[in-house]
């Protein structure tokens, strides 16, 4: 694993919201064409890591190299250029509520390219069909279900054929069938376009199914990173707990709870 292969390199990254530190010394590497899943429970800092990698938040320390360029140090114009080769699918789709689904998906093309309207609509249609959304092109985002919004968000993220795709919580709040469909879609995208994909999730099955490598975060620290087998075989207590879904808080003792209730009254 040499440096030249790494598309994204995160070195020694720490991040904080004001006084509250949420990430501590993260080191990561993502290779071209790889699917990396960042896993962790709620509050483990995985969303913060994503926001840092997207340049939506400045780290308090460390660097994030994208093709060798530190996204925290480049100027606005260069950052804009970098961003055109990144696609981001947000948790709820994050479609602009004032535009129709079709217009949302065409937006990056209209803003960043000089393509004529006909080419743009062919490209948009292609992506919509890929996401199985062709018939919803003229609807407004408010008329779509959660799963459709996610898929539309994904369609918009890949409209510019980015080198790298970020996907925040693909299966959160979805029924199992839709969630499996989305996983398949992610694999297909990599297959079809050789995209590098970073997925942030807390869903185990989905992670095990799509990941080449999995990074496990716990309380803002990177616990371990490695292949699915490596994670399954990992003996670290925090990883084992996450995999076995062991609750972090003690189960409620019904008798004790009742007795406390009655004592209180």
């Amino acid at each position: 694993m040499s440096d030249s292969q790494a598309l994204i390199k995160v070195n020694n990254l720490s991040s904080a919201y004001g006084e509250r530190k949420v990430l501590f010394d993260i080191d990561l590497e993502v290779k071209q064409g790889e699917i990396l899943v960042v896993m962790g429970g709620s509050g483990s800092g995985k969303s913060t890591l994503l926001r840092n990698m997207l340049g939506l938040m400045m780290p308090s320390q460390g660097e994030i190299l994208f093709n060798g360029k530190d996204i925290c140090k480049v100027n606005q114009a260069e950052l804009a250029k970098l961003r055109q080769s990144m696609g981001v699918a947000f948790q709820g789709g994050a479609l602009l509520s004032s535009l129709s689904v079709g217009d949302n998906i065409k937006l990056p093309l209209r803003q960043h390219t000089d393509l004529d309207e006909k080419t743009i609509s062919i490209m948009a249609r292609l992506k919509l069909e890929l996401m199985n959304l062709a018939e919803y092109e003229d609807l407004m985002p408010s008329e779509l279900s959660g799963g459709m919004l996610k898929r539309a968000g994904l369609a918009r993220a890949v409209i510019m054929d980015p080198k790298i795709l970020f996907f925040d919580e693909p299966s959160a709040g979805l029924d199992p069938v839709t969630s499996v469909e989305l996983d398949q879609l992610i694999l297909d995208l990599r297959e079809a376009m050789n995209m590098t994909i970073i997925v942030v999730t807390h869903e185990l099955e989905s992670a095990f199914k799509i990941a080449d490598r999995i990074a496990v975060l716990f309380d803002g620290k990177l616990v371990t990173i490695g292949s699915v087998e490596h994670i399954k075989a990992c003996s670290d207590e925090r990883v084992v707990n996450l995999i076995n879904r062991k609750p972090r808080i003690n189960p409620l003792d019904a008798d004790k709870y009742l007795s406390r209730l009655t004592k209180g009254s």
């Binding site: 340049g55 994050a94 602009l96 803003q111």
Partner: peptide, 9 residues
């Protein structure tokens, strides 16, 4: 939606 816009440059 603003994060999405920013990420689309």
């Amino acid at each position: 939606q603003f994060d999405a816009l920013t990420c689309m440059a």
